[in-house]
Computed example of a mutant assay.
Amino acid sequence: MTRQELISAAFAAREKAYTPYSHFKVGAALLAKDGRVFTGCNIENATFTPTNCAERTALFKAVSEGVTEFAMIAVVGSKEGERNTLVTSPCGVCRQALYEFCGPEMPVLMAKSEDDFVEMTLGELLPLGFGPANLG
């Protein structure tokens, strides 16, 4: 799967976001090492704490299906009805959740469009991340 195809899948997932409070829609597409793609959107809640980000929605869907090895993730976000003008990066909680399964070398694509994106590793986004190796 190309980077552009993964970003396109994230844009499609963003359309399903439930954002009645912030009106900021985020989509994520997580590519498993076996080639499957798991998508997610942000899902808000009136009490805010139960809100779930797009990246964790995709990750939790994958893990619930028994998939725990990943190659790359794409993330897109913008205000409802607006065109992407900035990249949207995973929040700190999502960075930590991804680190649990993906480690520091996994590419993270943060896109304005299929052809305009920033690519960083998870380790660049979460330097000195804490993962399973820290407990052993």
Rank of each mutant, 00 (worst) to 15 (best):
T88C: 07
F70T: 10
G40W: 13
F48G: 00
E105P: 03
T68C: 09
G92H: 09
E114K: 13
E119K: 09
V87W: 12
F60Y: 14
E55M: 03
V93T: 01
P132F: 06
G27R: 11
V108E: 09
T88Q: 05
A46F: 01
G27S: 11
A12C: 08
P132R: 12
I73L: 10
P107T: 07
F60L: 12
V87T: 09
L126M: 09
A74S: 06
L128D: 11
M106C: 10
G129D: 15
C41H: 11
L86Y: 11
A54R: 00
C91T: 00
T51A: 08
K79Q: 11
E5H: 14
G81C: 06
N45H: 08
E65Q: 09
K79A: 08
G77Q: 01
T19S: 00
P127R: 05
A71T: 14
E105C: 07
E119P: 04
P104D: 12
L86M: 14
T49E: 02
F70N: 06
G129M: 10
Q4L: 05
D115T: 13
A9Y: 09
L109I: 13
R36M: 13
T39W: 06
E82L: 12
L98P: 09
S89V: 09
L86G: 08
L135S: 11
A9S: 14
Q4Y: 04
A46S: 03
E105G: 08
T121D: 08
E124G: 10
K25I: 00
M120W: 02
Y21P: 10
N52Y: 00
A17C: 00
K25W: 02
A12N: 13
I7K: 07
L31M: 07
L122W: 03
G35H: 13
A29L: 07
T51R: 06
V93Y: 00
A32K: 06
R56N: 14
G77P: 03
G66K: 04
P127S: 13
G81A: 02
G35T: 11
L135V: 05
F130C: 07
K79Y: 03
L126V: 08
R14V: 08
G131Q: 11
L135F: 07
L98D: 10
F130K: 15
M1T: 13
N42I: 15
R3M: 11
N84A: 05
T88F: 01
K112H: 09
E114A: 15
A97T: 14
